[in-house]
Design a protein around this nucleic acid. Structure first.
Lengths: 235, 235
DNA sequence: TGTACATCAGTGAACGCGCGTTCACTGATGTAC
DNA sequence: TGTACATCAGTGAACGCGCGTTCACTGATGTAC
């Protein structure tokens, strides 16, 4: 709030308007689904539709802003959840906190989740600056693995060795998010990451309907299972 | 072809028209994305848009038909891949065949895949008769696990026990697709199923862009990893 | 085998709607002197 | 502190488009006698 008091009043009002437009857009996504309509947003804000163009040059630009926001919100949820665990040596606890944090954000904002992890919007190409925010959750996972590895407590018993073809790229990813860790461990991390979002997508997209009722308990089971798979321990 | 020669010529022509409309619709999904337009389909078929209504009562009905087709095509791909393995005791081989078959179908028909495993279409509620075709792949997986279990070759070392809350529903699912198997094994199967489709969604929705190039090799790695997780062996 | 009637596929016009985007404009707010 | 000009937010009309669906119709194909 107070931290951007500098700048003219006009600039502040403008920033607030941008937020309001995005809020209206998010509300609309929640109701009508993925068909974002500038006219509907303007209607909700008691504005004329062309007024939106003072704030966003096109529908695509607004969509990009929403996608960026979603990535950052999810990234922040993951980071804060990970940071909330006091005992940094409790790698299992950190992983579980992150897993829960990601699910909590996704279930609270299912349509924003669908925006970034659902089927790609037709005709829309994500610009380059979504890449960095989009990997924030996997960076958090990388840090946990790195710490567990440094502490000499990362189990690698029975780990699958990737075929040589895959090693260079795995090493490259590892260098970025968990430099101390082997290619095989990095592969495991990517798989766990895939599984985590697979689980959330299945839940949010209704794939467990008529199958499992207590989705929170099921997710918890899966998160613990993944922790065992990743070789993470509590202490 | 020849198996439905009975019935009037009119009925046969009608069936062919329905197929042509669905083909045009699929082609359109592939190009324009998820926004199915009856008028565009009619245009492609050199018909007037209202003519489509002789074959489908509404846009939703056509969409439902496409979804049903997609589920059945995927189910068939999974079943045929599973059946193609001669040695029925090679449970690992059967699993890998199914995993590859599912991916092969999905990469060949990415938009039909997105239709059934992407974000739900806004305002569209899947009717009840999609349920049965939608679980065909998991039924195939169930049969492999059941056979492995009956042969006494399903490893359960280190398996995670689900919390009591989840047991009844897991038992119910097991009763349906792999009656001999414990709740914990069933949980493992569901997790593997989730992971498999998580992997395919990640690949098709572009989540591995700038990360992994040889997606087939990566998927193969992941499929083998899952087989080890599931406790399946070659012999 | 031929005729009379019913069924069906496809036409073309229309209804009523929503959309993104452009443009010239008015009036208020900010900035420079 | 006051004035002159520039910047900006929001208006309202319009362009050109596409959409799903309905309806009365024409003409061809099938069915019953």
């Amino acid at each position: 709030m107070a931290e951007r008091t500098r700048g003219s009043i006009r600039a502040r009002v403008r920033a607030e308007m941008i937020d309001e437009i995005k809020d209206a857009a998010r509300r609309q996504l929640a109701e009508g689904g993925a068909n974002l309509s500038l006219r509907a947003i303007a209607r909700e804000m008691n504005m004329v539709s062309s007024a939106i163009y003072r704030y966003f040059a096109s529908r695509d630009e607004l969509l990009t802003a929403l996608i960026l926001d979603a990535y950052n919100a999810l990234g922040e949820a993951a980071e804060q959840a990970g940071a909330s665990v006091r005992d940094r040596d409790d790698h299992l606890g950190r992983w579980l906190a992150v897993a829960r944090g990601v699910r909590a954000w996704a279930t609270a904002s299912p349509h924003e989740y669908a925006l970034i992890y659902g089927s790609p919007v037709p005709g829309y190409e994500a610009p380059q600056d979504t890449v960095e925010p989009s990997i924030r959750p996997v960076v958090v996972l990388g840090a946990i693995l790195e710490d567990a590895h440094d502490a000499g407590r990362l189990t690698t018993k029975g780990i699958q060795r990737p075929v040589p073809d895959l090693l260079p790229e795995l090493a490259q990813i590892a260098a970025y998010i968990a430099p101390g860790v082997s290619e095989a461990v990095m592969a495991r991390a990517l798989i766990a990451w895939t599984e985590l979002f697979g689980a959330i997508s299945f839940e949010l997209f209704g794939r467990f309907k008529n199958t499992i009722t207590d989705l929170a308990a099921w997710y918890e089971h899966q998160a613990r299972d993944m922790a065992a798979y990743l070789g993470l321990t509590a202490r």
